[in-house]
Amino acid sequence: MILNYFYVMAGAALGGLLRYVVADLVQRNSKIIFPFGTLTVNILGSFLLGLIIFFLGEREIISPELRLFLTVGICGGFTTFSTFSYETLALIQSAEFLQAAYNILLNVILSVAAVYLAYLLSKIL
Results as ranks from 00 to 15, higher is better:
Thr80Pro: 01
Gly15Cys: 06
Ile124Ser: 14
Leu25Ser: 14
Gly11Phe: 02
Phe78Lys: 00
Leu98Asp: 04
Ala12Arg: 02
Ile53Glu: 00
Leu17His: 09
Leu18Ile: 09
Val115Met: 12
Val115His: 07
Ile61Leu: 11
Val26Leu: 08
Pro35Asn: 09
Thr88Asp: 05
Leu49Ile: 08
Gly45Leu: 07
Gly15Gln: 04
Gly57Phe: 00
Ser122Lys: 12
Asn4Ala: 11
Phe55Asp: 07
Tyr102Arg: 15
Arg28Trp: 08
Gly50Pro: 02
Ile74Met: 01
Val108Arg: 09
Ala95Glu: 14
Tyr20Met: 06
Ile92Thr: 09
Leu66His: 03
Phe36Cys: 06
Glu87Thr: 09
Leu66Arg: 01
Ala114Cys: 10
Leu70Gln: 02
Ile124Glu: 15
Asn103Trp: 05
Phe84Cys: 00
Gly16His: 05
Val112Leu: 15
Asn107His: 12
Leu117Arg: 07
Val26Met: 10
Thr79Ser: 08
Ser30Trp: 11
Glu58Met: 06
Leu117Ala: 13
Ile92Tyr: 02
Phe36Lys: 06
Leu49Cys: 11
Leu98Tyr: 11
Ser46Phe: 04
Tyr7Asp: 07
Gly57Lys: 01
Leu39Met: 10
Ile104Pro: 04
Gln27Asp: 06
Met9Lys: 03
Val21His: 09
Ile61Glu: 02
Leu51Met: 15
Tyr116His: 13
Glu96His: 13
Ser82Trp: 04
Leu117Asn: 08
Ala114Val: 12
Arg19Asp: 04
Ile104Met: 12
Ser85Asp: 04
Gly11Gln: 05
Leu125Ser: 15
Leu66Phe: 06
Tyr86Lys: 14
Ile53Gly: 00
Phe78Glu: 00
Leu120Tyr: 13
Ser30Thr: 10
Val22Met: 10
Ile32Val: 14
Phe6Leu: 15
Ser46Val: 08
Phe47Met: 05
Leu120Cys: 13
Leu48His: 03
Ala90Trp: 01
Ala100Met: 04
Val22Ser: 08
Gln27Asn: 12
Asn42Phe: 10
Leu44Glu: 02
Glu87Asp: 11
Ile92Arg: 07
Leu106Glu: 04
Leu125Asn: 12
Gly76Lys: 02
Leu44Arg: 03
Ile2Glu: 09
Leu66Gly: 01
Val8Ala: 10
Asn103Leu: 06
Gly37Asn: 11
Gly15Arg: 01
Phe54Tyr: 06
Cys75Gln: 00
Leu48Lys: 00
Ala101Asp: 04
Arg28Val: 11
Leu39Cys: 06
Leu39Trp: 11
Ile62Ala: 03
Glu87Pro: 08
